[in-house]
Computed example of a mutant assay.
Amino acid sequence: MTLYDNHNRPLTYVRLAVTDRCNLRCFYCMPAEGIQYLPKRELLTFEEIKRTIALLARLGISKVRLTGGEPFVRMDLMRLIRNLVEIPGVNDLHITTNGVLTAPHVAELKRLGIASVNLSLDTLDAERFKLITRRAEFGPVMRTLELLLKHDIPTKINAVVMEGKNIDDILPLVQLTQQHAVDVRFIEEMPFNGEGSHYPTLHWNYARILSYLKEHHPGLYKIPDPANATATEYAVPGYKGTVGIIAAFSRTFCGTCNRIRITAQGTLKTCLYDEGVLDIRQLLRSGASDDVITEKLLQAFRQRPKDGFEAEASRSNHLPAHESMSTIGG
């Protein structure tokens, strides 16, 4: 079956955060001192996650992405992954990770048939990595990238473009696509760092990123975007990989958005910019039947905002600046 929202957009994809904790302190994600993490009892248990994903799969959600925080900070994550890949209707299981703790699990991820891994990597310079993430973990992250490529797991590198931080890394990251079949995606910085936006105006928006890429790679050409893609995709002639730009703050892709989010505490978000529209954890722990939970989910999907601007305008505080991406689910 195909599940649709009230704007006749198919819903096929859920991003589920397994934890709000992270072992990095990235400039664009949270303050240097970190955030107030949720007590363990407030996180969805593995059993609750499995039940939720099974219910969504019956409705037509076929793609699942595990996020955090950093998912591999969650103890025994591989046990959860082994269970999720067995759920009927879950055709593709993906993971977004910062790569610090991922390397020891890459071989098993390959055996389990993980569809892809998104690796957060904003720089190829060890010192800049330390400045951006506030941690000296560049070596383990690059080891993870090496193993993902070795095991031929489809890999996307997510790089947030930050003025004054990593502009010098844009071209070296593009160069990775010359010899490797990776998709390097440049992302507009969003105001979800627990502090508010760093800039009065977003100078490095998708248009400027594209202009910069074309200036240095005049042959850059447009390639077809996958259905419901958040990134606009390009390639450099003769290069094995691709280059994408995600207009995360400009929100140009809302019209084809097929994804929902579930935070680590079980809050359903039908848009990144909303405040959360359903407390799934409360339903699960109150003894609600599968039928009741399913109907509540369908009600939420029938009231989905048309885009991120409408979702943001409906918030009680109208500004998401106090939130961290680690809390929301990357």
Rank of each mutant, 00 (worst) to 15 (best):
Leu109Lys: 05
Thr96Arg: 12
Gln178Lys: 15
Asn193Val: 02
Leu149Arg: 13
Trp204Ile: 09
Val174His: 03
Leu112Ala: 02
Glu108Val: 13
Arg135Cys: 12
Gly139Trp: 11
Met190Asn: 02
His94Met: 13
Asp125Leu: 13
Ala159Asp: 06
Lys156Ser: 10
Ser116Asp: 09
Thr102Asn: 12
Val160Leu: 12
Pro154Tyr: 10
Ile187Met: 11
Gly196Pro: 08
Gly89Ser: 04
His151Thr: 00
Pro88Ser: 01
Glu195Ala: 05
Pro88Leu: 03
Thr96Trp: 02
Leu121Ile: 01
Asp125Gln: 14
Val160Asp: 11
His198Ser: 09
Arg134Leu: 05
Pro154Asn: 02
Gly89His: 02
Leu176Glu: 03
Arg135Gly: 05
Ile114Arg: 11
Thr144Met: 14
Met190Trp: 00
Thr155Asp: 15
Gly164Ala: 13
Gln175Pro: 04
Ala159Ser: 05
Phe129Thr: 02
Glu137Ser: 14
Leu119Asn: 01
Ile187Trp: 05
Asp152Trp: 09
Ile95Val: 09
Asp92Ile: 00
Ile95Ala: 05
Arg128Gln: 10
Glu108Trp: 04
Tyr199Ala: 14
Leu145Pro: 00
Pro104Ile: 04
Arg134Thr: 01
His151Asn: 15
Thr155Pro: 15
Lys150Tyr: 04
Phe192Ile: 10
Gly89Pro: 15
Leu171Ser: 04
Val141Cys: 14
Thr155Leu: 14
Val141Ser: 08
Val161Ile: 12
